[in-house]
Simulated assay, not measured.
Amino acid sequence: AAALLFLLLAVGGAGVVAVMVAPAIPLLVDAALWLLWPVEVRSSTRFVDEASRRLASVAPTVVAITGSFGKTTTKAHVGRLLRNRRRVVVSPASFNNRLGLARSINEQLTPGTEVFVAEMGTYGRGEIRALCEWIRPTVSVITAIGPVHLERFGTLEAVASAKAEIVDGSQTLVLNIDHPQLAELADAEEGRREVIRCSSSSARADVYVGPDSMVYLRGQAIGATSDGEAFPGNVACAVGVLAAIGLTADPADLASLERPAHRRQVATAQSGAVVIDDTYNANPVGARAALSMLGRYASPGARRVVVTPGLVELGRRQFAENVALAEHAAREATDIVIVGRTNRRALLEGSRGAMSVRVVDSREEAVAWVRRTLGPGDAVVYENDLPDHYP
């Protein structure tokens, strides 16, 4: 392998290596994780055992949240809606694996904590089931099923099956039934446990968030979010969690819900340009929603810019999804800035109808161009930011 890499560098340089190696990066990362998994388990056992004992001693209601996307935002919404009602601990940032959750429990869970909200992520089947063996959920939440991590799971059905591992042992299941796989799961689990259906498309759901941001709980309006950009499915699931533990969300708390960092956050730069930071979003649905914000924040006739390296971990759908992303960007933006080489070909294909397309090697180069170019009235969305191991 090392000899092959040396030969590629000698013949074609770093660009050739990047093009040939980029598609294999997820597989290489998976192989490394698989090799290191026994080491991680051995090194983390002491911390996990300590966390298990602490959980048993404090005995909070455990809310476990997973989904292809929307986990972190929904978790933050639950914490905000509960903070004036219960003593709540929310796992921080994206601490959603075995060691991260053990650390969250050991460092933050104290006697008197009434609710522990745990985000659970997975890169493969069995991971969430293993987490639930020692973090036993009272309420299980699945926010969405989408084409994320498909290079590992292969199909949406496999994604749904892995996420559904969070169901076992829980008393109440909160599901976003706007996703067909979760609507089917809701029907299958009816009668086995309480099921709370959440939706932004069906007013008959237990929790419904309408197009005017009004939130309904079992048909009764309980308040509205003031953030028109909030994803209604995430809000609905958070309200569903409160219903699962016998509470109704307070209207003032609903109105105060905010987006987590780097997820469609809006700010005004020193230049006067509006900056939409969506760098922590990596799913096609959220990406399209962020791009659609440009027209609402840019002044008429001003520049509307999309800066993106594209989306990854989409398996066989990655090329097509990035073509679609660029096509959407071409409709919404005056300028598209393509970062890096990972998805360059797909993004260039999809952006053929754009007014202006620029290709740069790094996010830093893109940011420098934005700062030189944009001014008052202009708007830019930074869509996704790939880890360093992607070219």
Rank of each mutant, 00 (worst) to 15 (best):
P284Y: 03
D206V: 01
L247C: 12
V215C: 08
E119M: 10
V167H: 12
R288Q: 12
I276D: 07
I145K: 03
M214V: 14
V380D: 08
F95T: 07
G79L: 10
L291N: 11
D30L: 08
H262P: 04
S170Y: 12
Y382P: 00
N322Y: 06
F319C: 00
R263L: 10
V370W: 07
F116R: 02
I135L: 14
Y382S: 01
G350W: 03
S362V: 00
A221Y: 00
N343Y: 02
V117I: 14
G272H: 04
V16F: 12
D253C: 04
V21G: 00
D277L: 02
M355N: 10
R80A: 15
L9V: 12
A366D: 02
N96K: 08
R263F: 04
Q318A: 10
T61P: 00
R136W: 06
D378T: 06
S200C: 14
V339M: 00
R86Q: 09
Y297C: 06
E151W: 09
L36V: 07
P251A: 05
P232M: 06
G100C: 12
E119K: 13
T342V: 11
V312E: 09
S52D: 03
R218C: 04
V88Y: 02
V148Y: 02
G100A: 02
L242P: 13
V39Q: 11
P284E: 04
V337K: 00
A188V: 07
A230T: 07
E327S: 06
L36W: 11
P147L: 00
L131D: 01
R372M: 09
D227L: 14
L9T: 07
S68F: 09
F116G: 00
H389E: 14
S104H: 05
V357Q: 05
F47E: 14
Q108A: 07
H149C: 02
G246K: 05
V239E: 03
A56N: 09
V89H: 08
T143S: 08
R263G: 03
V48I: 15
S52C: 11
V312R: 09
Y123E: 12
C132T: 15
R136F: 05
V359W: 02
G146R: 06
E364G: 09
N384I: 03
T110K: 13
Q265I: 05
V78A: 08
G124R: 07
Y280C: 07
R193N: 10
A289L: 14
Q265S: 10
